[in-house]
Design a binder for these strands. Structure first.
Lengths: 197, 197
DNA sequence: TTACACATACCGACTGGTTAGTCTGGCCCG
DNA sequence: CGGGCCAGACTAACCAGTCGGTATGTGTAA
């Protein structure tokens, strides 16, 4: 058996990714040396450059993983067979819970975009846009059917909500008074109340 | 006369700060070398280390400048002789306009906090907390007097709004369809609508 | 008014340290 | 016994901050 796993049973690539995620979130991308990552994962540089092309690749993988998960979840909520306000509320609350559950990923996402190589940056932006557009479509559907106010452009609504999601990694602390679900309910309520006609 | 100015008449320290602000926003703090900054300002390292103690000092100065301006403006709006909903709306809209007018500063603010030395970081956090608390006091005043809904804790309201302000540096482009004032009006309206009882 | 001392403003080569990525070689499983 | 998997020394480049030096202005005393 190839020794892609160690005593703990987790495959080396995943150990590297987990170590990198934690360190990037704690110290920032540039402040984290490749040496630190491999030490935290219990391997050496040889292993890292066997599985990943560059330090940059590691960062890109964090983005890809997060975008994949969020897009899948959004699609599921948006496609549900419910009134549009219920679908939007569910999607808006879910992204809050998911973001809190992966606060490290979120921290890295919004703080380290500019550290990606130009091509990877472009790719991430494109996927992100796809995500936003799906969300915006929900808002527009509600506006067209008169369920939501049309006072504010749907684009702005989306940026408004994702601003607050983005901001979570700055202020949310697990030891704080609110559970992820409570925060999600509050933020979704705020969105829906702002959208009342 | 000491030659603290050059052909363009701007004093050297301010030229350095302006160059650093632009470069930090464009490339990030760690990716910007001291050499680049001094070249952009048309001086050399000797000049930089004559006026500033470290690269870190330069970053801290950006933060201090921004916090000073925002706090002054908030205080002015909060102290005005008007109903609380008008005061909150004015303050909420003003911070949006000011942030858009200094998008580089805002970008650096939210992206580079963790690059500050621990003491400076602590200091910035303290000033920022003071700012938030002043804003929160406005929300609480409105909630106590029944002008705003009490469904959501005031803390969360503040983070909700500043999330969207924070996010501006990610999506707002001067060449886009909305003027800073229009964006500010929309975001302030969203906040006030979410607060309707 | 001149001359000398001192301070401020700045220059730019240099140093000590760090880093991403490479490469050769060896281990071990099938 | 061969190739996927990995070790770890090595390289080439870069960077923050230092330091001795120069130039220009200001105060002071003969």
């Amino acid at each position: 058996m190839p020794r892609t796993t160690d005593g703990d049973g987790t495959p080396v690539p995943q150990r590297l990714l987990a170590a990198a995620t934690r360190l990037f979130a704690e110290q920032g991308y540039d402040r984290t040396s490749v040496q630190e990552i491999v030490e935290a994962a219990g391997v050496t540089k040889g292993a890292l450059y066997h599985y990943f092309g560059s330090k940059d690749d590691l960062l890109h993988e964090v983005y890809a993983r997060m975008l994949r998960v969020q897009q899948e979840r959004l699609d599921a909520f948006a496609d549900a067979d419910e009134p549009v306000d219920r679908r939007l509320r569910a999607a808006a609350a879910d992204v809050v819970v998911t973001t809190i559950e992966h606060l490290d990923d979120a921290m890295i996402f919004f703080r380290s975009m500019h550290h990606l190589s130009p091509e990877k940056n472009k790719q991430v932006r494109a996927e992100r846009r796809r995500y936003h557009e799906r969300f915006r479509a929900l808002v527009e559907e509600g506006q067209k059917t008169g369920v939501f106010s049309t006072a504010t452009p749907a684009d702005l609504i989306v940026d408004y909500h994702f601003g607050s999601v983005h901001h979570l990694s700055t202020w949310y602390r697990p030891e704080g008074p609110l559970t992820p679900q409570q925060v999600a309910d509050h933020l979704a309520d705020l969105l829906l109340r702002a959208l009342r006609p």
